[in-house]
Structures are given as C-alpha cells and as structure tokens.
C-alpha cells in the first residue's frame, strides 16, 4: 500500500442528482468511483492523483439493464457479472457477454463496471471493441444537461475522453439489429484467465449471395484507444471472401493500426496476430 488513505476524501451522496450536484459544485474537482477496480489499484500503487472522490457504486439509478424490442440500454454501473447473466445480452450481443466473461477474474467481474471500463479508456479494455462493433450510443448526464453521443466519438486519445469534469456516463444503448450477423470475438492475452489483452478483436458481419454486405470490426491494443477498423471494413465491403480480399484486408488493417512495443508484447506481434484474427474470422464467414 503506497498511499496514505487518510489523505483522500470519499463521499456517498444518496442519489444521482446529489452526485451530479457535487460534481457541478466548486468544491471539487471530484472523481467518481464505481467498482474501484481501476482507481483502487492506482491508490495501492501510490499513483492516485485525485484526492476527492465521490462514490457512484451504490446508485441504483446507474445499475440497470433495460430492453425494448428495438434497443438494449445498460446503466453505466452494470457490472461484468450483470452482463454475463443477462439472457438478452447472451443471445443478441454475445460479443459483449464474451468480453465480460474474460475480463479479469470473477471477483473483478463482480465489482468492475461497464461504465468504468469505458471512462477509464484503456486501449486494451475488453468490452470496448464490442461496443464499437455494435455502434453503441452513450448518454452523458450532468446537473445542467443530458447529451447522447455515438460511442465512436467518445475517446480522444490515450486515456482521453470527451467527458466533462461535471459529467457522468449514465448509460449505453445498443440497437437490437444484429441477429442476422455472424459474431466473432477473440482476445489474445498474456494467459488464459485474468489477463490484459495483447490484442483483441470483436467483429460482426452479414453476407448476402457470397458477398460481405456489412462488416464491423472493433479492436483493442492496436492504437492509443480502442478502434473501429474502418479502412479494413471498406476494403471488405461487397467483396467475396477470397485469398485476394483477405490479403487486401490484412494490408488495410496494417495500414490503419499503430501498435506499440511494451512490457507485455511487441508491435510486430500485435500487428501480425490482429491480421491473423481477422483472417480467422473471414475464413469462418465463408459459406
């Protein structure tokens, strides 16, 4: 334990409204803490810079899963365990339940939240490629206003987001449009369980008459933020799955990713494996 906990403040306002008021007040800045599986690690390591925290973990307003025939809305406080248990997610959004199942350990899944995963904005985060593939929308709330934005525009750079200091991520909405799609998700981590991904892909595709009619590919650990591989998608659009298209797709993937060397892996490895995963998906798509 490398921090002195008595230097930190934590409050637990009873309602969402009260939390938003605190965030908007000039007493801050306050940092929200949900499951704490990021922030408490930072505290333990002595690198939690913020001294004032506001707990949102207890807010039932943020922990819900609401389904309509057209949409699924997830409160930002939904835990990975909640995601894994939900039958609609299991059938309609299997990329997300799979990502939840390989996030950390059971204990981490019981505490860690989808909202925390999004706002923490790690390029290696597991559930974010799936959200990109599903074209999720985010609802952000503050004492002043509520705004809904496409998730694809949320990340600005390495661990940078458009979230304002007085805002909370309220919920994530997905369209239930993907029943006809083939789903593919694979995480390549440092080991089988409890691993940070070296590279991960979550993808959806629909074929018609042997041609790729629609394809969406989300990826982790290939740039400074989770990304959608739009150039690769363009190359594949309306194409049959042939050696040539696969080669072109691999080249496109390489051109739009910028992986790095770090203590977990190498840039070359990440790029090659990402392309292999894509190829594996395309092979599986073949009629």
């Amino acid at each position: 334990m490398r921090s002195n906990p008595s230097h930190y403040e934590l409050t637990t306002p009873a309602t969402l409204e009260a939390v938003l008021d605190i965030l908007a007040s000039d007493l801050g800045p306050y940092t929200p803490i949900a499951g704490g599986t990021e922030l408490m690690v930072a505290l333990g390591a002595g690198r939690l810079a913020t001294r004032k925290l506001v707990s949102i973990n207890h807010l039932q307003e943020l922990r819900f899963i609401a389904t309509t025939p057209e949409t699924l809305t997830l409160g930002s406080g939904t835990t990975f365990t909640d995601l894994r248990k939900d039958p609609v997610i299991a059938t309609d959004f299997s990329l997300l339940s799979q990502a939840a199942s390989w996030t950390g350990s059971i204990a981490n899944q019981n505490r860690g939240t989808l909202g925390g995963n999004i706002v923490n904005a790690s390029p290696a985060a597991d559930s974010l490629p799936a959200l990109l593939a599903y074209e999720a929308e985010l609802t952000l709330v503050s004492a002043r206003a509520t705004r809904t934005i496409p998730y694809a525009g949320f990340h600005l750079g390495y661990k940078k987001t458009i979230l304002r200091p007085d805002e909370l991520l309220h919920s994530i909405t997905l369209k239930r449009d993907f029943r006809e799609y083939a789903h593919y998700a694979r995480k390549v981590g440092t080991r089988n369980a409890q691993a940070i991904s070296k590279v991960a892909i979550a993808a959806l595709a629909r074929l018609k008459d042997g041609l790729i009619q629609d394809i969406r590919i989300g990826a982790a650990s290939l740039r400074d933020r989770p990304i959608r591989l739009t150039a690769t998608e363009r190359v594949l659009q309306n194409q049959p799955i042939t050696r040539e298209t696969i080669a072109a797709a691999r080249a496109a993937l390489t051109s739009e990713t910028q992986p790095i060397d770090d203590i977990r892996s190498t840039a070359k490895y990440r790029a090659a494996v990402a392309a292999n995963l894509l190829e594996e998906f395309l092979h599986q798509l073949k009629p």
Binding site: V41, G44, S55, H58, T81, N108, N110, R111
Partner: peptide
C-alpha cells in the same frame, strides 16, 4: 498483491466474491 490480481484478500460482500484490497471501506 494489493492490485486485485492474486485473490488472497477475497471476502464475500453481500454474498459476492470481491477482492477486499480494491474496496474502499466506505463502500
């Protein structure tokens, strides 16, 4: 470990398995 990795600090909190090194007391 103090980083949520080893599980030696596991306890049940409201019946759920959690790593107590990652739970702020007030929560």
């Amino acid at each position: 470990c103090g980083e949520g990795e080893c599980g030696s600090c596991s306890v049940l909190m409201n019946g759920e398995l959690v790593n107590s090194c990652l739970v702020p007391a007030l929560q």
